[in-house]
Design a protein around this nucleic acid. Sequence first.
DNA 1: GGATATACATAGGACTTTGATATAAATGTC
DNA 2: GACATTTATATCAAAGTCCTATGTATATCC
Lengths: 167, 167
Amino acid sequence: MQNPTGTPGDAEYSDVAWLLEELFRLSRRISPTSAYSLTVYSALASLSRHGDARLTELAAYEGVSQPTMTQAVGRLKRDGLVQQIPDPRDGRAVLISITEAGRAALAERRSTRGERVAGLLAQLDPADQQAIVAATGPLRKLAEAVPDRRTGAQGNQPTTPLKWERQ
Amino acid sequence: MQNPTGTPGDAEYSDVAWLLEELFRLSRRISPTSAYSLTVYSALASLSRHGDARLTELAAYEGVSQPTMTQAVGRLKRDGLVQQIPDPRDGRAVLISITEAGRAALAERRSTRGERVAGLLAQLDPADQQAIVAATGPLRKLAEAVPDRRTGAQGNQPTTPLKWERQ
DNA sequence: GGATATACATAGGACTTTGATATAAATGTC
DNA sequence: GACATTTATATCAAAGTCCTATGTATATCC
C-alpha cells in the first residue's frame, strides 16, 4: 500500500486527481437546487471567510475571468447578498462585501449540505469516517496550495499581491 | 481530536461539507480550460468507467436534468466523443457510448490534472500526503453513498433501477 | 503633462441549465 | 386489439455561466 520511500507513488497521486471528479459529482448532488451556480456560492463563501475583496482578486481566487465575476457579483448584488463599496484607497476599485442576507443564504445552504454529508458519513465504518476526518486538514492544505488562475483579458496581471493568498 | 464514542462529532462533519467547497475550487483551478464544463467531463468519465448508459440514467447519476444531459450528449456527439446507439431492448431509449476519441480526450485531461495534483501533493508533508492517500478510498465510498437526484420534468421517475447505482 | 498600467464595465457569443411540453414506444387494462 | 397510462427522449424558451475582446476611468511613472 506504500512504496519503500514512505511517500505515495504515482498511482496514488492520480487516484487523488480522479477522486476530485467524484467529489465534484458528490458536491453537486448534495447541493440544494438554487438560483446560483457552485461558483457563485463559492465566491460568496470566500467573501464570508476572508472578508471584503476586490473584484479582480475574487475572480483570480475562484479561477474565473474578471468579466464572469462582474456578472456574478451583479446578480448577487441584485439579490442583496453582497454590496459594492468604492475602495477609498483606489478610485478604480470596488470592494465586494457580503451582507447579512448573504450570510444567511450561505448558512442555509451549508446547513442543508452539512446534514446530507453527515447522513452519508454515518453510513460508513468508523474507520472510514476517521480516515476522512483525519484528511480534512491535509486536503485543505492541498486546496490552498493551488496557484491562482490569473484569468481575464490577456495581459491583465495585477502587480499588487492578492491578500487572500498564502503570503 | 476525537470524542469518547470514537466516531467523529458534528463539528468534524460540517468540516467535511465545507471541505467539499474548497475542493470544488481546487478542481476547477487545476482543470485545463476547455470547451466543456466540469459536468460534461464528469459524464464522459462516468461513461468511461461504468460503460454505456441511457440518457436518463446518466442524467440522474450526474445530478442534472434530462434536457441538460440531452444537450450535453448532443455536443459530445457532435465532436465525436460519444455515440448514440438505439437500445435494442427498448425502442424509446438510446444508449450513450464513449468513443475512442472520447477516451483520448479524457486521458489527456486526466493527465494534466494528475500532474497538477501531484505537484501540489509534493509540497505537503509526507504525513499529510499519507493522510490524503489513506482517505481516498473512504471518500470514494462517501461519493458512492449519495443518492441520485432524480431530476428532469417533474413526474419522470423511471421504475427500472439504475444499473450504475449500488445494487 | 503624457505614456503606461491597472480596475472594472460592457459587448458579443458559445455553452449550461432548467421547467414545460411534445413525440414515440412500451405497458397495462378491458 | 383498442385504449389509457407510463416512460424515454427530444424540443423550446428563458435565465444563468463563462469566455475573449474591448472600452473607460483612475493610478502611477517618467
